[in-house]
Write a protein that binds this DNA or RNA. Structure first.
Lengths: 243, 243
DNA sequence: ATTTTATTGTCACACTATGTAACAATAAAA
DNA sequence: TTTTATTGTTACATAGTGTGACAATAAAAT
């Protein structure tokens, strides 16, 4: 990354590099200890929470812009990304939260400031390895942190709608091995995979049926046994085959 | 509609009413005589074909803009519309086709003309009653006509990609009764419904299995018998129940 | 009036997928 | 050696789907 938001905000003319009116928002999913998590930014001293986002450069592919946002917030490249919807409600035009953010940052602005436009948000969800990601706040933010999806703070504008729609798409796509591949460790037990499913779907699944379905799918390769140190039969570990 | 494109093109300042860089494209599906069709515009004297599209007014809901485009091209309101993807490839930035269109229309323009920007296209597909729609060309076009989806002309920019992605989404959504409801007459025979499925999916389906699945779905109400005037048993006619 | 024709509605059977309970295997603690 | 909790597997019932067979029928052909 040879540019960053700090340079951009320091020089208002730099906003000229971006397409006006188009923003990119990312629902970045991680998974740890039976909890589904997403990354949330907190703007400085404002108590305003938002999904990580960014803008589209005038000579940049739309999907590349989403990858760039991902990289800037997590340090990770080659992330699974899926564009699931574009949000264009007029309710998104409320500029008060962003005015508050700019004030708290002591950033001078007028009504025509780039960040105070109406934005159409092209939204992606991403699947990342919770352990590998290193969340980084942007210049306007104090923090970029993981939040359990069942304990989210109140989010700016329609960002909670965006999250809910992303989760619905994730639930529909759960049977693609890319979901387990990106949210779990490289190898895992059948119980760990079932726990992931149950967390994402928000419901208990039958153990026998789940086991059979996964084995018949042909997407899992059984490796050795795993020592759990617990007083019962030790489970096999599995890995996803490429598909 | 109290505005139209004629007024807009006559007065360059009117482009100020629209969000820059954002366009809306519609894949408008119809069905007639076992053929799936979409509406295609032909720009005046240029041999350039394109999907019907439009732009987003600064104070307009994104979905309302799509409805407006639909109404302008078909005269129909209350159409089934589904936003399926947003296209933002740099390949869309090639302004030569639109320059040709403007030249053929004897419209003076410079490099900064509204229509010669890079546009991000928010794309919808629509399902309309082929018999009720009355296709209307816009000012830049000679015609707005139905084309069989298996005999499409070469389309501008990435419009063929857009069509293909719309068709994939239609195929995935085919089991929602809204598809049959909007593409068939109010009442229909089982064969007519099966023909629609086969046309959309591009494959033959088993008659017995199709019949059974439809009846078990609970989405069909059997009405009376239909006189076909043909030398064999006459079929029942059905109607979709609301869901 | 009877037979022929093509299509429709339904049934029967096989096969697959899924929900559920039961039971044996097992690793470590008791 | 027994107990405990979890895992892997099997068995059976139920639901869904693919396929062929056959009777019902509306109008044309005889």
């Amino acid at each position: 990354m040879d540019d960053n938001i700090e340079q951009v905000t320091a020089d208002h003319l730099s906003w000229e590099e971006f397409m006006p009116g188009i923003s990119i928002d990312c629902v970045i999913f991680g998974y740890h200890r039976r909890e589904l998590k997403i990354l949330i930014l907190e703007y400085k001293k404002s108590g305003i929470f938002a999904l990580p986002g960014g803008f589209l450069r005038k000579n940049e592919e739309l999907n590349d812009a989403a990858k760039r946002v991902l990289f800037e917030r997590t340090g990770l490249a080659d992330i699974y990304l899926y564009q699931f919807h574009t949000f264009g409600s007029l309710k998104r035009s409320d500029t008060r939260p962003m005015q508050t953010v700019l004030e708290k940052n002591n950033t001078p602005f007028d009504d025509g400031h780039f960040l105070l436009q109406r934005f159409i948000s092209v939204s992606y969800y991403a699947l990342v390895d919770f352990k590998q990601a290193e969340p980084v706040a942007d210049v306007l933010s104090d923090s970029c942190r993981w939040y359990d999806t069942d304990k989210l703070p109140q989010l700016m504008l329609d960002h909670h709608n965006i999250f809910e729609k992303a989760l619905k798409h994730l639930q529909i796509n759960i049977d693609r091995s890319v979901v387990g591949l990106n949210l779990l460790d490289d190898t895992f037990t059948m119980s760990e995979l079932q726990n992931l499913y149950e967390t994402i779907l928000g419901e208990k699944l039958n153990r026998t049926g789940f086991h059979r379905k996964m084995m018949l799918s042909g997407r899992l390769k059984r490796l050795g046994k795993k020592k759990t140190g617990k007083p019962h039969r030790s489970p096999y570990v599995y890995r996803f085959t490429e598909d």
